[in-house]
Nucleic acid binder design. Structure first.
Length: 112
DNA sequence: AACATGACGGACA
DNA sequence: GTGTCCGCCATGT
């Protein structure tokens, strides 16, 4: 862990700036963090934070508006769904979120 | 210092 | 429009 680099700090800062009822993508966070192609690192970094911090990592999803989570933390995804729904975000059974409606930044510009 | 891995993204088939 | 492969950047070993 040790987010010594400015990048990690930027990601955390940005995530903390995400308003409730909104969601964003790794790509956007990475872009704002200073590395538009480092989307992987955003999620990778979040996986280190999870509930250990008070970061709304739940609002950060992939470009498809879907929670990837390769690890298999299905409970994490389920928790995520509930959290987003409580914030006013519609989440499908497949953990799909409408980025065109709930996209925080420019996420609404693109979709499948 | 180098290699391998990873909550992704975009391009190509 | 869907599926698959390659690539980018940072972290961990």
């Amino acid at each position: 862990m040790k987010q010594s680099n400015n990048f990690s700090l930027n990601v955390v800062e940005i995530i903390k700036k995400i308003p409730s009822g909104k969601v964003t993508t790794y790509g956007t966070v990475a872009l704002l963090a200073g590395s538009p192609r480092a989307a992987r690192e955003v999620g990778y970094l979040l996986h280190s934070l999870t509930e250990k911090h008070n970061l709304p990592w739940q609002r950060v999803i992939n470009k498809k508006g879907y929670i990837s989570i390769r690890g298999g933390d299905i409970n994490l995804k389920n928790m995520q769904k509930l959290l987003l729904e409580k914030e006013g975000v519609e989440v499908s059974e497949d953990f799909m979120v409408d980025l065109e409606k709930y996209g925080w930044f420019g996420d609404s510009s693109r979709k499948t």
